[in-house]
Each structure stands twice: as structure tokens, then as C-alpha cells.
Nucleic acid binder design. Structure first.
Lengths: 195, 195, 195, 195
DNA sequence: AATGAATGAGAATTCATTCAT
DNA sequence: AATGAATGAATTCTCATTCAT
């Protein structure tokens, strides 16, 4: 990694810490600079402005997320188990990264400008991967075909995001991965009584 | 309604319009006051501060939502159809109230202080009602028993909130109630291939 | 004068003092506010921004200038003496108002945005008056006709502005109204040897 | 010219281009460096600071101006025609160099620090030359003697500077050398009706 | 001599809130 | 109760200049 990239990462790291505790508005550039041990002006050599810095946080984390996730998928060959793994890993990851969860769930996910900014692309790569898994599952017959895979993805991610969001708002008082089996069960089999 | 309450409503109405377009931070008290045809100082006779005014918006709308929802439930006696109606009405309501959707989905739903503020109660009344429906459905056998009703509620609301949020971020370009049947289907029957 | 206008004047007065010593860039809003005994924010209730405040200074002074000038013209009925009076009064006025001279000659007169701003109008009223005097002089035969009055005005004001500017740059070390007679003479009779 | 001087000129050239469009404050060192194809730090090897660089622009141009002017004077032996030539050439030069005109008329001419800086000397050489011409004219009898030659110079340069300045402020919309004959006429013969 | 990354001081402006009328 | 003028804290961002390489 070049010296340049290194400093960039160093700043993003500091930003992640600060934005992890305070909202975008309440976080101060001065605090980030201090935490990153650079002058305030230096931030502006690496990022266009405060928002650009803010939006640059997810890239790194998302990459980390995806890499780990792929490792976890190794050796799993059927769609349903991949989905189960996805559900578990998603919850596990945010349980382990609550500060980043705050940033992503309570700020980014709700921001039009983030979506428009190029920084959304990395996250899109992940959701594309999820779609792939679903389509493979449909092809192999383990996931219902005849249902729009986008809709299936919406259900899975909707539930997961909701779960993480609630957990954050309740100040992370309970175990986010708890009841993981039931969550999978309801997503897979629905809420309707089967007979 | 007292003259006092009337003016209160007038202000909330103006606030809903302004906050419907701009974010909390970007909305100006001065604009709200102007739109409500009162002096800025007057706002502070009715609301403690900007946040208090902001958080006061949902009460009225939620009540409206609940009343209408109850009307729509009239004559429906089985749990599954109640759920279907819930799903439809939820999407329909936000389709008809996109400005309010913005406020609720992109700001309130993501705010710790809103939850802590008393103003969350009205919304809680609604989610309690959903829980009731689920429990009734479980009792009558149409909804799977043996699954935590809270979890079932989480799935339903998670999907719905996700759907509305995506729609807002995509600038309301498509029909929010579209594919309503498929949405119900996936929620009710799950994503797993049934055989 | 309304209370509102009074405070406006008070601020302009303070601004004139500060801008009289420091350049536009070097003058600080905070100093002006302090000198005017108002909060910094108050300035922005009366003026759009720093530049707007700056450009608002000449109006008052120009009016004062014109009024006095008109008094001085009283009882003078021929064009040449009016021109002589103009020359004298112009030099005299800036001699008595060196701080304002700085603002007008070294900053405003050289600023495209000032000309474009409405605030230039008051000064235009003065130069229009000068043109009138010249045209009257031409009509009565005391000033050369057959020469564009605009050009004549340009000569008169050009010399005067140059004189005041030089005086300011030389730090007002000599008497600005000195040699007034010779100045008139050269402007009136030209530089060419008469035979 | 040494390699060193060459780079110096290169930088001044770039500075002239940039300062020709933007004001001193608005021009960026970085842009000048880029245009001169040197690093920002390099500028500071050749010039003490931004102002020093800015003030260094006129030297070269003034020299160019004087050389050309002297060529134009060749073969003219009487004072009045020299003055006429001066008036014409002055207007012509700035018409051909509007960017430099901006710098000189709207910024330098109005700056105390420029006068104090040594860089004013080259310009002084020119005004000294003008004084010489006037004194020669007085000696030969074509220019009025008995009038302070400094005052005569003030009239000539005052009118010319005023003319160029107005032209710049009016965004160079008309021909600067237009009406050149009338300008000479008024300067030479004055504004007074001759009988 | 040349570089260019890092610096950090510095200032305008906004706007929710107050309070005298 | 209503007003709205006055407040002033609070913060991003710029950019000339430096200096280690």
C-alpha cells in the first residue's frame, strides 16, 4: 500500500471512530483530524469535503465484509444454506462492528446523496452477490422459482436491516445473533401456518 | 378543538410540509413560521424546540393511519387476510403521503431521540395492534404458532419499511403498491421451495 | 428616521471607519460589529454579506457630498465658475474625508462588482450632475461646444481622481487643495502654448 | 539570459496570465505553478511570496512598453506631437494588452505597497520620460511654460488612466483608441471656449 | 535546485432560540 | 398570547507557505 493510501486509510479509520459515536452533523472535522494525527487541512487533500470523507468509510468495511463472507461460503454448495449463512454472517458482522453499524444503518442507508455518490458501488457489489445466490438457489430448485429474485432479496435484506436497526436503537442491549434459527425459519418458510 | 389546539395543528401542518422536502438540518424554523403565518417566537410557545416540533408531526398522521386502517379491517375476520390488508394499506398509505414517508422512514425511524421522546407512543400503538393481529392469527391457526409473534412482526414490518425506503431513495419513480400480491406471497409462504 | 434605519446607519458608520483603515480583505466583520456595538449576526439582518455592507457605505457619503456641493453652487451662474467650484469642492471634500477617500478611490472605483451593484447609482447621480453643468456651459458659450461633453467630463474627473489617488498613495503628506488655481487653469486652457 | 532568468520569466508569464483574469486574492498560487509547469515550492525560490510575484509582473511589460514607445517617438521632434504620440500609444498598448491593463490599472495603481516596493521604479522611469518630454516642449515653446510640468503630466496621465479604467470596468466593450483626436484636442487646448 | 505533501491560522456566515415590548 | 429583532456560538474549508526529501 502506498504511503498515500496509508494516510488515507488512517484518516478513514479516525473518521469511522468519530462518526461511529456522533451523527454526521455533530461530528467535528477537528476531532477527526486530531484522532488521525494530521492537520485539518490535510483532510482536504484526501477528501473533497466532510461528506466525501463520511461516504468513503463504507468502502473498506464493505470489502472486508465481502471477503470474510466469501470465506464463510466456502464449502457450502446449496442455496438454502448459503442464505442461512448470509443471515448469520450479516448479523454477526454488525454485532462485531456496532459503530460501523450505526453509520451504515442510521445514516448511509437513509441518505439519497450516498446512493448517488460513487461510494455506494461497493455495497451494490454485495447486494449483487446476494442476488446471484438467490438465482442459483432458484436454478437448483431449493429456492422458490416463479418469484422475482429481487423481491426475495428485498425480504431477506429488509428483515436483516430492520433487525440491526432495532438493535441499535435499543442501544445494543441484547444479542443481535440471538434467535438466528427462528429468523432463518420465518424467512425461509414464511409466516403462514403450513397446513 | 380549542383555538390553542387549532394553532398547534396549523404549525404542525406547516412543519410537515417543510420537513417533507428538506431534512431536519436543512429545514428552517423561519420558513415553517412563515408557512404557518405566525412569528418565529410563537413556535416556541407551542413547542419546546425544533426537535420537539419535528417529533410532533407523526402523532396526527399516525392516528389518521390507524383510524383508516381499522376501517379497512372491518369485515375481515381471518388473520391472513388481515395481514394482507395490512401490507396493502401500509404501502398505499405511504404512496399517498410521500412527504410524510420521507420524514418517518428517512429520519424518525433512524433516530434514537425520537424513540426516547414520548412521541413514539402513537406509533407503538400501531405496532401493538399488528402484534395483536398476529397473535389472533396464531390462536385461530392461520398463522404459524410456535414462532415468536414479535419475530413475525419484525419480518412483516422489516419488509415494508425496506420497500418504502427503497422507493423513496429511488425518488418514488415506480408504483409502491405494485407487486403487492407477490410481496404478500413471499411473506406468507417464505422463500423456500415448498416441496 | 426609523429605529431600523438608525441601526443601519450605525453599522454603516462603523464599517466606514474600519474599511477606512483596512482593505476590504483585511477588515474583519467582527471588528465592525464590535465598533457598531451589535452582534455579528445582526449585521446579516441588515446586509446580505460583507460585500453588500461595504458597497453600502458610499450612498450616505455621496448624498452628503451632493447636498453640500449644491449649496456651494448657489449664486454661481456661469459654467466656468461652476467647474472651478466643482474642482475645488471635490478636492476639499476628500481632503476632509480621507478615510472615505481611501474606500472610494482605492477600492470602489476599481471594482467591477461595485459598478454592477445598485449602490453605484448614487454616484452616477453626481456624475450626471457634472454632465449637466458642462452642457449648460456649452449652451451659454463658456465651455467649448463641438466637443463631446462626456469627454470633457472624463478629463475633469480623470484629473481629479488621479490627484486624489496620488495624494492617498503618498500618504496624504501634502495639501490636496494646494495648487488649485493651476489645476483649474490647465483643465480650462489646456497644456498647449497659446500662441 | 541565464537558465535561472528563463525560469523566472516563465513563472512571471504564467502569473500574468492568471492575475490577468482573477484578482490578487482570487488567483491561486497552485494555478500559477501549474501553468508555469513548476512545483508550488519552486515559486518560492524565485519570489519571496505571492505579492512579490504579483508586483514583479509590470517590470517586463513596462520595459516592453518603453522600448516600443521610444521607437514610436523616433523622427518626432516637437513636443506637441510627442504628447500626441504618447496619448495614442498609451491607449493602443492597453487595448492590445487588456489582461495586463487589469493588473496595472485595477490593482497596482491603487496599492500603497506596490509603490513602496522597488518594482514601481520601472514605471517611474516611464513617468520620468513623460516629464522630460513636457519640459522639452516647454523649453521649445510648444507647451505652456509657467505651469508646473508635474501638473501637466498629472493631467495627461490622469485622463489616460481614467479612460483605460472606465474601459476595463465597462468590460472592454468599445474601442479604447476611439476618439483619440478629440482626447488630444481637449488635453492640449482645454475645455474652455477660446474666445 | 526542485518538489509537493503537510500545515494551520483565520473568518464569514447561519439560524435556533430568547426576551423585551 | 404574540411578536420579531437581536443574539453569538459554532465550524467548515481555503490556500499561501514551509521543509524534509
Amino acid at each position: 500500500m502506498s504511503k498515500n493510501d496509508l494516510k488515507r486509510q488512517q484518516i478513514i479509520q479516525a473518521a469511522a471512530e468519530v462518526f461511529g459515536t456522533r451523527s454526521f452533523q455533530n461530528a467535528a472535522i477537528s476531532e477527526i483530524a486530531q484522532k488521525a494525527s494530521v492537520a485539518e487541512g490535510t483532510l482536504y487533500q484526501y477528501f473533497k469535503n466532510k461528506e466525501d470523507l463520511f461516504f468513503s468509510i463504507p468502502a473498506q468495511k464493505t470489502e472486508e465484509f465481502c471477503e470474510e463472507f466469501n470465506l464463510h461460503l466456502e464449502g457450502i454448495y446449496d442455496g438454502l444454506n448459503k442464505i442461512r449463512k448470509l443471515i448469520w454472517y450479516y448479523l454477526y458482522f454488525f454485532k462485531m462492528n456496532p459503530a460501523y453499524a450505526r453509520i451504515l444503518m442510521l445514516e448511509m442507508r437513509v441518505s439519497k446523496s450516498f446512493i448517488k455518490s460513487g461510494n455506494y458501488d461497493r455495497i451494490k457489489a454485495f447486494t449483487d452477490r446476494v442476488l446471484e445466490i438467490i438465482e442459483e438457489g432458484q436454478a437448483e430448485g431449493s429456492i422458490r422459482s416463479g418469484v422475482d429474485p429481487y423481491l426475495i432479496r428485498e425480504v431477506i435484506l429488509g428483515v436483516l436491516e430492520h433487525r440491526v436497526t432495532r438493535w441499535l436503537l435499543k442501544e445494543e442491549k441484547y444479542d443481535l445473533t440471538g434467535h438466528y434459527n427462528e429468523v432463518c425459519d420465518v424467512i425461509l418458510r414464511g409466516i403462514k401456518s403450513s397446513e
